[in-house]
């Protein structure tokens, strides 16, 4: 009889623990935070561009994805600060700066004095992880519409950028999900720099 009560107590404890873990949120840094001065610097100043906060058009804006435990418990991933639009704008600026562009995030496109002002929409952005017995499988996807408005002639260049990635790790840590999301965003943004060029201060498609 006593054993039955102890068993029931343990099951209840596991259930409570399982439920409690559902409300936990794992915050991911997007873009990855760098030490001051560690960002690559180009010798020749590149194009001067501004980036405004992206519109978050995801069907589910509440979180980025889930970390599913071995026994079914779930934790949720989210962008630190819970502002995916600002995070993607910052990530794009970070990526373009790494390519030598003079990229600045601005709050208002009208105040921008840059050659090109980028805006856009987040259509998809997620990261999911599923813990197994000997590994944790991660997958991530990003789909972002980016629009560059040329100051010189008023034309707009619009592209839809996509990136996908997956990883499998033995010991899962939050950094694994964080790195994967940032890699997938960088892969998406790479199409922007590889498919465009600057001609007389205006962004053009290759």
């Amino acid at each position: 009889m006593k054993t039955r009560f102890v068993g029931l107590g343990l099951i209840s404890l596991l259930l409570v623990a399982g439920c409690a873990s559902q409300s936990e949120v794992i915050n991911l840094a997007v873009p990855v935070l760098r030490e001051p001065g560690s960002a690559p610097v180009s010798k020749t100043p590149g194009p001067k561009v501004s980036i405004v906060r992206f519109d978050d058009k995801r069907a589910n804006k509440a979180w980025l994805g889930t970390l599913t435990g071995r026994f079914g418990g779930e934790e949720r991933f989210n962008v630190r600060g819970n502002d995916a639009g600002q995070a993607v704008a910052n990530a794009l600026a970070d990526y373009l700066r790494s390519k030598g562009w003079q990229a600045t995030v601005v709050s208002d496109a009208a105040q921008s004095a840059s050659d090109v002002t980028f805006s856009g929409e987040i259509l998809e952005m997620n990261v999911d992880a599923k813990k197994g017995f000997f590994s944790t499988d991660l997958s991530s996807k990003a789909k972002v519409m980016v629009q560059g408005s040329n100051r010189s002639d008023g034309s707009k260049v619009r592209m839809t950028l996509t990136g996908t990635g997956s990883d499998s790790v033995f010991w899962f840590s939050t950094d694994d999900a964080q790195v994967l999301v940032n890699d997938v965003l960088s892969e998406s943004f790479s199409k922007l720099s590889s498919s465009t060029k600057f001609d007389n201060g205006a962004l053009r498609l290759n």
């Binding site: 008023g154 034309s155 707009k156 260049v157 619009r158 592209m159 839809t160 199409k191 498919s195 465009t196 053009r204 498609l205 290759n206």
Partner: peptide, 9 residues
Amino acid sequence: KSVSGELIV
């Protein structure tokens, strides 16, 4: 439109 994107005026 081109393979890489779209120009809009």
